[in-house]
Design a protein around this nucleic acid. Sequence first.
RNA 1: GGCGGCAUAGCCAAGUGGUAAGGCCGAGGUCUGCAAAACCUCUAUCCCCAGUUCGAAUCUGGGUGCCGCCUCCA
Length: 489
Amino acid sequence: MPIHIYNTLTRKKEPFVPRDPGRVSIYVCGITPYDQSHLGHAVPSIIWDAIRRFLEYQGYTVHLVQNFTDVDDKVIRRAQETGENALDVSRRYAQEYLETMDALGVKRADVYPRVSQEIPAIISLVEGLLEKRHAYEVDGDIYFDVSSYPAYGQLSGQLLEELETGTRLAVDERKRNAMDFALWKSAKPGEPAWDSPWGKGRPGWHIECSAMALKYLGNHLDLHGGGVDLVFPHHENEIAQSEAYTGEPPFVRCWVHNGLLQVKDEKMSKSLGNYTPLSELLKEYSAAAIRFYVLSSHYRSPLQFSEEKLAEARRGWERLSAAVTNLQQLVQALKDLPETDGTDEKVPGLRELAEAVRFSRGKFIASMEDDFNTASGIAALFELARSVNTFADQMAEMGDAKKQESLPILEEALAVFLELGGDILGIIEPGLPGADSSELVEGLMDILITVRKRAREQKDWTTADFIRDELSSLGVVLEDSPLGTRWKL
RNA sequence: GGCGGCAUAGCCAAGUGGUAAGGCCGAGGUCUGCAAAACCUCUAUCCCCAGUUCGAAUCUGGGUGCCGCCUCCA
C-alpha cells in the first residue's frame, strides 16, 4: 500500500507520490517568536516529526524546512513594550523554541529560514509579481491583486465575492480590491526596515513563506503543513502569490493541516492567554508522555487539552513504557542464561507471540500509511504489549531451554517497540531503568535484592518488607515478577 | 452572513458499506507471604429524523449542538 494523505485542497485522501522519487520536500509553517512556546506550538512540531521519521523509515530522503516569522507586528509590539530591538526579541524566543523542541525529542529541520535573513529573496519575489502585474504599488506599499489570480479561494473554498461582503475590517481605501493583501509595507518610525526599490520598508505577512519555500524547496513542494487556522488567508495567499510568480502550478502538491489544541473548547493561543508554557509542562511530564498524548489522536482532529487529560494519557503511556522496559530486562536476562542444548518441545504460546509481533508491525505500518494514523498505530503497540506480557507470565514455568528458544521472537518484539514506538513516534525511550545510574548503584541494588530474596526464602517477611519499604521511600520500586525481582525508579 | 470541520461507552479515541480497535477510570477474578506489576472477564449499536441498500457509525437529504476561519495566531 502506498501512503495516502488527506489533501486540504481536494478534500480527499490521495496516494502520496513525491515529485522526485525517493525524496520528499516539506515546508511547515513555523512560529512567530514573540513569547514563550506552548503546547499548541508543539502539536504540529510533534506531528511533523512523526511524519518525517516515518517517511525516513520508509526510505525517503526528507528535506524539511520550517520558518521563523521574525519580522512581524507582534514581535515589533513586544519589542516596543520591553524597549528591546525587535530582532533581539525574536532571536531569543526562536532560540527558546528550538531548545524546547529539542527537549521534546523533535528532530531539527534542515533549514530554519528567518524573514530577517531572507529580505533579498522576498524583494525579488515582490519585484517579479509587480513585473507580471499581479501586484501594484501605492505610496510605498505593495499589494497583491487578487483579481489577477482567478483561482483565488481554491484552498479555503471561499468565493471572492463572498469574502468581500464578509469582510469584518474597514477596508483600506487605497486597495483595488478588499481582499488584496500587503506584500511589502512602507517603513514606520521605530520599526525594523530594509531598503527596497520602493523605499524603506518590511515584508507583509504572507510573502515570506512563499519566498522561503520556493527558495529552499523549489516550485512544487510535496507537502506543506500548518494548523487549520492558517488555511485562510495565509495559505490561500501563499498559493496565489507563489503560482502567480512561477506561473507553474501547483505550488504545493499536497496541503496538510493539523487540528488545533483547545482549552475548554477554545483554541489555545497566546492572544487568548489560556496556555501553559511548555517549559512548565516539561517539568511535570516526560517528553515521551507529551508526545504520546499528542499522537494518541489523529492529527486532523482537534485535541482537547487539560492537565487531567494529559495525566490520563501519561498513565496509559506508563503501562506501555513499562511493558517495553520489562521486555528489555527479560531479553537481557535470557541472554545471560547458561547455554543449553536446546529443546525439541514446542514452547507454548510462542507461535501466537510470533504472530502477534507480525500483526502489530503490519497494523502499525498500515495505520501510518493511512494518513499518518498514529492513534491506530499506538493501539497496535498496546496489543503487542499485552501479547508480550501474557507470554512473559507463562515463561515462569519454562525451563531454560524453552526460554532461550523464545529469545529471537522476544527480540523481534522488542525491535518493533524500539523501531516503531521509539524511532518513529518517539514515545518509547530505549534504555533500561536506572541505566543512567552508576555501576555502584547497580551493584548495591543487586546486593539489596539478593539479601531480600534470601530473607523471603526464610520467610523473614519483616526484613523483606523493610528493604522494600525503605527503597520505596527513596523512590525505588521493587516488583517481584515470577522471573525474579526487578527495580525501577 | 459566508466557508471549512467535528459529533462513537463515565472520560480519551480508532474505525468511510458487512455487523463497534486501543487507552484511562470502575467492578469481579487469577497469580502473590503481603504489596506492586501482569493477565483474564464485564461495561456502547455510534447526536436526532427521514432516505438509499439484502445490509450504514460509515452513503444521501434535513435538523440540533460544538469548533475553526473570514482580523494576528501552529
